Amino acid sequence: MTVSGISVYFKDFDEKYIKDAAKAGARYVFTSLQISEQDYSNLDNQLHRLLEMSKEYGLEIIPDISPLTFEKLKIKKNDYNELKRMGFSSLRLDYGFDNLDLVKKLQKDFLIFLNASIITKTYLSKARKANINLDKIALIYNYYPHADTGLGWESFKKNLLKKEGLHTSAFVVGDLVKRFPIYEGLPTVERHRGMNPYVAAIELLHEAKVDNVFIGDSEATVETLKYINEYLQNHIITIPCNLLSEYKHLYNKEINIRPDQPENITRLLLPRKPNVGIRHNIVRHRGSIVMQNRLAARYSGEVYLVKHDLPFEARSNVIGFVGPEYVNIFDQINADIRIKLIPIN
């Protein structure tokens, strides 16, 4: 099942955010138990509360662990039974877990997530020879805190892991609270560092075919989480926009997309309307929402989204605009999905 997730760091621990995220549809909570800069002084209380909340709200906690984790938790080295006793049912194994026999052993007690950034064809070949059940292994890509260190988009899309049939997850930035100590966002892909996290998530899910998306930073808006979940659960792309007052009836409708799509516009499957008046004829910039007027004859009333800048045309009324941070989502719209226009907050 494809679901969304958030990240929780104990320096920024916020119970309200966890509750809101669960209500918005998030089902995974990623947390790191190996960050050297993190304050672990109140870890016992915060970790206990996080595990309590995971049961209360149906969340799966995925702790990112390394050999350093046992020291941070003040438990005996490699005491995985204690991790199980604490309440963890999943583990994300970061660097330092090359022992395939250990991975195979841990599969008996935990859902295992591996660091996708260090998995190679050679590793997968050895894993199969060791009889590790790859159907029960999931992969999570790293996030990259420092600007310019994230993965390249084109190479990411071509990664071998999807071709191997493995379940993959990746990170996008938060749009409320960036994570310490650099505060430059925590994306997997560098081009997403300055992008709206909802748009970045749709790119990962729709274009790169990633299975799950996590907010990497300490907090995202509830709206962002809801939009991501709406796509995951209902395959609807939500588009925040401003429509002229007489077209507000188009808000909150689930709109299908025509299967025969041209290059510059996205044609919507809405009823046409004869004799639409001629008004607001301006240059049709990328992000414009347009309705054809009576000069378009039988096309009067047809609505479309502008994907590339187009010149003024007397037959075309510009009836609204999509918020600038959401415009890139146009590139992910095709006949396999539906869209929903909503007013910008």
Rank of each mutant, 00 (worst) to 15 (best):
F312H: 10
A147L: 05
D101S: 15
V222D: 07
I265G: 00
C241I: 08
G277N: 02
S7T: 09
G25C: 14
Y326V: 05
Y183H: 15
D79E: 06
V283K: 15
Y227W: 14
D309T: 01
M86W: 02
Y123H: 13
H280C: 02
F10S: 11
N45T: 13
L124K: 11
E313A: 13
G96S: 01
L73W: 00
Y9E: 03
V29D: 03
G58I: 00
P262R: 06
Y144F: 13
I329Y: 02
L33D: 11
R191S: 13
L102T: 05
V306H: 01
T149H: 08
K108P: 06
M291R: 12
I344K: 04
N133G: 02
D135C: 11
N131Y: 10
K273P: 01
A335F: 14
V199A: 08
M53S: 04
K104C: 07
S66Y: 09
G174R: 10
P271R: 03
A314G: 00
N345P: 15
A24T: 02
E223N: 14
L68H: 15
L204N: 11
G165S: 01
L244I: 14
K74C: 13
S90Q: 06
Q34M: 10
E184P: 04
N42P: 04
S41F: 01
L268F: 00
P240M: 02
I65S: 10
K74N: 15
A220M: 02
Y198I: 02
V3P: 00
S32W: 06
M195T: 03
L250D: 08
V8E: 04
R128E: 07
D211E: 05
R315D: 07
S300E: 04
R191I: 14
I342E: 03
S90W: 01
I75N: 12
S7F: 00
I236W: 07
I344G: 05
V177L: 13
I140T: 12
V283T: 13
I118Q: 06
G185Q: 01
N242I: 10
G194I: 09
Y326N: 14
D44L: 08
S288R: 07
G323V: 12
D211R: 03
L161N: 13
A314S: 14
I118R: 04
K72A: 01
E325D: 09
L161V: 09
Y9F: 15
L33F: 09
V222H: 03
K162A: 03
N142R: 06
T238Q: 08
Y299A: 06
Y183D: 07
V199L: 05
E60A: 01
L305I: 07
K307Q: 07
L33M: 06
D309N: 11
E302Q: 08
N142I: 11
G165Q: 04
I202D: 09
K76S: 12
S32F: 08
E246F: 09
E52C: 12
L91M: 02
K157D: 03
E325M: 02
N45M: 11
Q46A: 05
H235E: 15
I236T: 15
T224V: 02
N78D: 12
N81K: 12
D20Q: 13
N81G: 15
C241E: 09
L47R: 11
G152P: 02
P311E: 10
V283P: 09
P311R: 14
S245R: 12
V3E: 11
T149G: 07
L124H: 13
Y80D: 05
D260P: 02
I132H: 00
